[in-house]
């Protein structure tokens, strides 16, 4: 082969940027999470574990993420099934706008929800007039559930839709001809086929919610009891500034996100090998 050895230079700039602006910053966080007063220590972690304040934030972030992942998956899956049956043009349009929705986070999204569901928002007034609710506080944790669900559903549609092509019309018709009920079809055929992609999607949605900062910050400011907000406050807040504690909290967050991804990868790799 006569390939040009200099082609390795084509990769140098990107690897340099990845090293300087991704790998080293991450390693710096890891290293300083184990450092306290200039010495190696587990003190940051000990303080976090002992602190009810930060533990609360972690627990709130975790259940908010799990809940909105369930809502996102639960609504995105049937919506995608419906999308399979609409004309191509409509399908493309809806997928395009879901892409905008999944990216429509931070201030734009928070403000849109404040207009709709804020203290004097249209929907707040309508729902109150209909007697469905007594009070709605968009700035509370319930508000976060509502807003997170929005981008989780959009992201869910984006990641689930492509995988649905595995359930072809032929499979469904074959099952129907054999007299398989819809429920049995999904329990015995549909879900097992889709399981790897659905679990992958759920892991992605969970990580997405757990790592969300801008939207929560835009809605609740520095007051929300969430891991990402606490990290932000520990770094840049006026009241509590403790960068080392922020590092330790970040590490706990990263481990929480990496473990499900690794488990998912290993699990399906093993199963894949088993099946073949």
């Amino acid at each position: 082969m006569t390939r040009n050895r200099w082609m390795i230079l084509a990769m140098a700039p990107l690897f340099a940027v990845l090293l300087l602006f991704e790998v080293l910053p991450l390693l710096a966080v890891v290293a300083s999470s184990f450092s306290r007063g200039g010495a190696w220590s587990l003190g940051n972690y000990a303080e976090l574990i002992a602190s009810g304040y930060h533990r609360n934030a972690y627990v709130t972030s975790a259940w908010l993420s799990v809940l909105t992942t369930v809502i996102g998956m639960g609504l995105a899956l049937p919506i995608c099934r419906l999308l399979q049956r609409v004309p191509d043009g409509v399908q493309t349009m809806i997928l395009t706008y879901s892409n905008i929705g999944a990216n429509f986070t931070g201030f734009p999204l928070a403000f849109a929800f404040i207009i709709m569901f804020g203290l004097s928002g249209s929907f707040t007034l309508l729902l109150k007039a209909a007697g469905l609710i007594e009070d709605l506080n968009i700035y509370s944790i319930g508000g976060l559930v509502l807003v997170y669900s929005y981008f989780q559903i959009c992201l869910g549609i984006l990641v689930i839709f492509p995988s649905l092509s595995a359930i072809t019309v032929e499979i469904e018709e074959a099952a129907r001809l054999l007299g398989v009920s819809r429920l049995t079809f999904w329990r015995r055929i549909g879900l097992p086929i889709l399981a790897p992609s659905l679990i992958g999607a759920a892991v992605l949605l969970f990580a997405n919610a757990m790592g969300t900062y801008a939207t929560a910050f835009a809605l609740a400011g520095g007051n929300a009891t969430l891991v990402t907000i606490h990290i932000g406050e520990l770094v840049a807040g006026d009241v509590f500034s403790d960068p080392n504690l922020a590092d330790a909290l970040s590490m706990i967050l990263v481990v929480t996100l990496v473990v499900p991804i690794l488990v998912e990868q290993l699990w399906f790799k093993r199963r894949g090998r088993h099946a073949s």
Binding site: L20, L24, P25, L26, V29, L204, M210, G211, T228, L257
Partner: peptide, 15 residues
């Protein structure tokens, strides 16, 4: 995708 933006920002601030 596994490391939230706020964590990366923290690392960049350090360096």
């Amino acid at each position: 995708y596994a490391v939230p933006g706020i964590v990366m920002a923290l690392g960049l601030l350090k360096l």
